[in-house]
Write a protein that binds this DNA or RNA. Structure first.
Lengths: 200, 200, 200, 200
DNA sequence: TCATAACCGAGACGGTACGTCTCGTCTTGGG
DNA sequence: CCCAAGACGAGACGTACCGTCTCGGTTATGA
């Protein structure tokens, strides 16, 4: 009976104001201390309006975060897959050194205690990045840059696991020198031997 | 000014009761539904007593979890550092597939929200493990098994980062096949080239 | 800034439930054992709702008590101001010997701990009674029953102060014999001397 | 079996330190906000020591208050009972205008909700004053200054009730002019008529 | 002279209530 | 039907005191 085309349409300005406020507060006080009450006040919006469109804090924060960092940190597409990977990881490391890194840490932290946040994080953040990385690796294989029999999951974890660990554990900064060394070691490890032989 | 030898002594039974209650509740309802109010009630303890000894929920949970994880997974000490590392990581992976893994995830999660908790985690959990690993790598270098100029932090992150990422993100299990592949790639990467040349 | 015509309206049932619970608890356990926590629980109301409308325990209790005391004890209006005062005070004394006396004592008690509560008490209880008394005294002056230069505040305190003291200190009951004696002494003292001379 | 004359004697310095701290805090923050915790800290004394010697806050405050104001505001003893009363009341009014007045108000306030405080207040504060006043009135009667048939309770309430009311209700200050007027009216009322006739 | 008993400070402890904050739902009036 | 404002029940937060309870150490007899 209720015609879906009936009644007032959703106001996109409101939607944006909410995400803007969420971003600002995420930066200022972090995910842990973020409250929907605070977001509503900051955005000049009724709390009910937030609850109408997002089921919980995690999904709101996730949408705000994704809007900021973009769907992925885009891989450049040059003729060298290796350079593309190196450049993307350098950009990612730079991003993670900033406020985005803190928010990602908190999202991962919360995910350990809340399955729904984990699902959102994987579906919206991690998987697209994994897929993008996979494309580049496949391109490298087709190029002959990388060994054809590599296990994609293993390489993905070797490329990104160390960065995540560094960011989460804080035992050391995510500086470029370390990144370059570790990426070099991994990519060298998947570069066909004949290349090395040719070099001898 | 406050003479430590004065006043009533701290009651260890109370301390234990609080940590016990924390463990139980962490298990039953998870970290983010955990309330100090609830812990106090469960432990039969005044809230103030908890606040006297722990600055916040995270530190309390961390101390409770640290009690749960056993001591460092010892590195076997054979004549081959490589085999020692491979074996230790296989055992570690096995441990992380069980309840300990769950606990470690939660400890890492907790650390994201409080610096003091992070410090507790690093001091009591991570550092001992890092140091043990360092010893084996040094042994390997002295043996000539590993390149002499390797950056320890990079190798540590490459060996353990992928496992941590896999465990935290849940995108894939920590199965032995993947572990073996990634460890092989890393250790190959730090094995001196002359070994390879001899093989040719 | 805050438009009063916006937002959900205050629920009068809640307001009443809070005052009802306060009265009951005041009766059952007394003021200094009264807790807002307890009132909230008894009224089936959130604590914040109480704090939204009353600044502290005293004001809440005062408002609850003010509901209990009836309107001003009316002064009868005959041709003799003296008789009117005597009759009103007799009626007042009777009232104060009952439950109302108990309540008035508590209101005075409350007022000692909070200026706002004192203000409430003066505005809503004391001032109307003082003004009514003032009218009768003025009438008596115009009649020639009372000296024209009397200080109203002094007379008010002399008429009612002794009753209040007796009621608050409990050192003696508020019996009619004492009332009559003290009122006679005061009113004699403000009755013009010529009357006495005529009697000689 | 335990000889009461054995063991260490009570330290009078401690006793004084506690009362001193109580007085200071009573002045600074009033009876309502006074805490035994605060007294102990201020006096440099263990809480248990206070609880050893006083059953509750009221009795501690009462003892401190009585030590400050003395057992009574002494009546001067000249040949005129009337002047003695006038002077004592002027001194009392002055006392009540200061911090002592505030504390007395709070004690009366609390007495409305706590029978034990009421008892302490009557026994230790009010009764001695009533008795002293009674002596002076009797002296006045024997002098022939006052009528021989006066009702002591009525006069006491007329002399002190107005001051108490003024202090408790705050509707007006306890200034000397009003005091003098009301005392004059009462004392005139109990002065034998022949005196007046002689004056004519 | 020296054991004994009470005194004393410090402060841990189980509690209760405080006053504040946020949650998620609801009601209201106005687009 | 959308929205801002904000009342509401619920309940955790972290703090302040309550009154009781060890502690270790300190006097002051009286055996």
């Amino acid at each position: 009976m209720p015609d879906p085309a009936t009644g007032r349409r959703r106001n996109p300005a409101t939607h944006d104001a909410i995400l803007d406020a969420t971003c600002v507060l995420l930066d200022e006080i972090g995910f842990d201390k973020l409250s929907l009450e605070g977001v509503a006040a900051r955005a000049g919006v009724g709390k009910a309006t937030i609850y109408r469109w997002w089921p919980n804090k995690s999904s709101l924060a996730m949408e705000a975060l994704l809007r900021e960092v973009g769907p992925t940190v885009a891989f450049p597409e040059t003729e060298s897959a290796r350079h593309d990977i190196e450049n993307q990881i350098r950009k990612l490391a730079k991003l993670y050194r900033g406020k985005t890194g803190r928010v990602v840490c908190e999202m991962i932290g919360l995910s350990q205690f809340d399955a729904e946040t984990m699902r959102l994080f994987n579906d919206n953040f991690l998987d697209p990045r994994r897929n993008a990385a996979k494309q580049v690796l496949l391109r490298g294989i087709q190029n002959g840059e990388f060994k054809p029999d590599l296990d994609f999951d293993v390489i993905f974890d070797l490329l990104y696991g160390p960065i995540i660990q560094r960011m989460l554990m804080r035992h050391a900064g995510i500086d470029e020198r370390h990144i370059d060394l570790h990426v070099a070691l991994v990519l060298d490890g998947i570069t066909p031997a004949k290349t090395n032989i040719e070099l001898i």
